[in-house]
Simulated scan of single mutants.
Amino acid sequence: MSQGCILITAADLAPQALALLADYDIVYAGKTPTEDDIVALCREHDPVAIIVRYSKVGAAAMDAAPSLKVISKHGSGTDTIDKVAAQQRGIEVVAAIGANASAVAEQALALLLACAKSVPQLDERMHEGLWDKATHKSLELGGKTIGLVGMGAIGQRFARMAAALDMRVLGFDPYARHWPENVEQADLETIWRESDVVSLHCPLTEDNRQMINAQTLAKCRKGVIIVNTARGGLIDEAALLAAVQVGQVRMAGLDSFAVEPMTAGHSFQNQPGFILSPHIGGVTGDAYVNMGLGAARNALAVLAKSGGTIAA
């Protein structure tokens, strides 16, 4: 007998995670669900848990599912979940923190190296039959300073990668419980002033929204590289575009954007100085399984506390 319904705000979930949820009816919201889709499915199926991959889950969805006990994020960022509304309704919000840390840190490193070494641009020119050895100069990262905003699982992993490149690593995170030995603790003003590279690894909150803006970019070293594998809302996109166009920012390597998915006509498209990827930092085969397992286990743990099931 089913112990209730679990709604997945996507078209799939790792088989290993589904095996943990075998006692529940699973409902999928599809590849690109809207908020209205989520509300309608909650009203129809009254899930006891929602595993969030795509779309937002707000108060309307929660009110449409009176049996809802837990909203479990398939990953670490919970900014697409209305946590205030959930708390007011006694619904627990949990996240699979660290499940995709390796994948996202590797994407940050890939973007950094692509920016410093002009990999995409040189590849394109080589395929056109051009040979730029006499005119091209890359940026050497050894000895340069990188400032990391956010020192959670992803930030700490990326810090080790940067240190392995012989970079000086600065870090800012007022909430960090453990501080890595190879990272100098710094405030944001020091990050802006002293970094040759700034990389974002923090959650998006109302306090740090558009923390990269015209004022903070003006404080940075001329030719700074900006890397963002966190949330697009951390950056004022118009200000970043202007800073790239005047050379204050050498390159920007971005995996997340203020509005997703990015659509045709975005100001970053076909602009020199930008290397873009479609928010796929955490999308690897291993991370897909790890995030699914983490989200399923977290949901089951909350349901167990509420008498809904036995935790796996």
Rank of each mutant, 00 (worst) to 15 (best):
G58R: 12
Q87N: 13
M126H: 13
E184M: 11
A153Y: 01
L18K: 10
T229R: 01
N182H: 14
N213R: 09
S256G: 01
Q88S: 10
G90I: 03
K83Q: 15
V169I: 08
R53C: 10
D46N: 14
L200W: 14
T9S: 12
V93L: 14
S138T: 08
A108H: 05
K73D: 00
P33K: 09
D79G: 14
A239N: 12
G98R: 13
S267A: 14
L241K: 12
N270D: 12
E260V: 05
L293R: 02
A159G: 13
G253C: 03
I51N: 09
R160W: 08
G281Q: 01
K69F: 10
L18W: 00
T80N: 13
Q88N: 11
S138C: 07
T284E: 11
T32M: 04
R125H: 15
G253M: 04
I8A: 05
L240C: 05
R177Y: 07
A114K: 02
L276I: 02
V84G: 14
D23C: 09
D255T: 08
L130F: 15
V183N: 15
T216S: 00
V149N: 04
M151T: 03
R53F: 10
F268W: 08
V289K: 08
G58N: 10
I51H: 04
V94T: 09
A86H: 11
L41K: 02
E206G: 13
A304F: 07
D82W: 11
S2G: 04
M251D: 02
S195C: 14
I6L: 08
Q269C: 13
P272M: 05
I26S: 09
G58S: 08
T190H: 15
G273N: 07
P33I: 05
P47K: 02
V57T: 06
A186K: 14
G155L: 04
S67N: 15
P15L: 04
E181L: 09
P47G: 03
A238D: 09
I81P: 12
R250S: 10
V169M: 09
E92N: 02
I81L: 08
T229A: 02
D166G: 07
K83Y: 11
N290A: 15
L165I: 07
D255C: 03
T190L: 11
D236A: 01
T34H: 04
A295P: 07
T205E: 00
A86Q: 12
A61E: 07
M291R: 13
L7D: 07
A153D: 14
M291L: 12
R53E: 02
P33D: 02
L20P: 08
Q121P: 08
Q3M: 10
A163M: 07
R177F: 05
I275L: 09
G77I: 03
K69C: 12
Q215N: 10
D173F: 13
Q215S: 06
A49L: 07
M62Q: 10
V183A: 15
G232L: 03
H266Y: 06
I225G: 04
P120C: 04
A60E: 11
P120I: 09
L170C: 10
T145S: 11
N298E: 05
N100Y: 01
I225R: 00
K69P: 14
